[in-house]
């Protein structure tokens, strides 16, 4: 039945494109999570009056984060072409999209991490200090656990942004559903291909949101 409605859709190609989108999103979400967490922690910890309070370092990190967060993604891809060639070796395929995806999303997530950490009750950090905790213990036993719901909801939002970034990266040659919609759908005038690619992207986004919300609620004991 599907094949009578979506006459131009090649199902094996669609499946492959979906896999590519999932692959790009998954890898970039994982790396963005760790990189963004590290950057967000650095932003928070170097802010005045904090564990590693250092105005200079804080401004440097803040500037880097703000600059990369502000560059439109499509331009970031172009700017990163030489860098991507250098480390991936090509500008085609899913791997080639990863550097731009991560460089674009990590600063975005870093800000959310910073906001999450700021929400932590200062008194709790103080209590840990008064017990003789080291800075590492404060980070891993207080800061991260006490901000998990916000960290998870932040990575959910970031993951959804990444899915849409992969679609954009697709247009530049990275494959995936965005590439399919553009190349096979738009350029060849196959509206059904565009439609079904969009639908699949929506499904992916909804699933991510649903999982993210469930985890956030389960973790929040406040």
């Amino acid at each position: 039945m599907l094949s009578t409605w979506f006459t131009n859709v090649q199902w094996d190609v669609l499946l492959e494109a979906t896999n590519e989108t999932l692959y790009m999103s998954a890898i970039s979400v994982v790396i963005t999570f760790f990189l963004g967490l590290a950057l967000g922690l650095a932003l928070f910890l170097t802010s005045p009056g904090n564990l590693w309070g250092n105005k200079f370092l804080n401004s440097v990190i803040a500037i880097i984060v703000n600059v990369f967060r502000s560059i439109p993604f499509i331009i970031l891809i172009i700017l990163l072409i030489p860098f991507t060639r250098l480390i991936v070796g090509t500008m085609l395929g899913a791997e080639a999209a990863l550097p731009a995806l991560i460089v674009g999303a990590a600063p975005f997530y870093a800000r959310m991490v910073e906001i999450a950490l700021r929400e932590i009750n200062k008194g709790v950090i103080e209590a840990a200090k008064s017990m003789g905790a080291t800075n590492a213990q404060i980070i891993f036993k207080v800061l991260i656990p006490e901000s998990t719901p916000a960290l998870v909801s932040g990575i959910t939002v970031t993951a959804i942004a990444l899915v849409s970034y992969t679609a954009m990266a697709g247009v530049v040659g990275a494959g995936g559903l965005g590439n399919l919609a553009y190349m096979e759908g738009y350029q060849r005038d196959n509206a059904d291909v565009t439609l079904i690619s969009t639908a699949l992207i929506l499904v992916i986004v909804f699933v991510i949101q649903w999982i993210g919300d469930r985890i956030t609620t389960a973790l929040d004991k406040r």
Binding site: G123, K221, R222
Partner: peptide, 9 residues
Amino acid sequence: FQHFNLLWS
């Protein structure tokens, strides 16, 4: 502490 400062997690 006045506000207990327990870890909610």
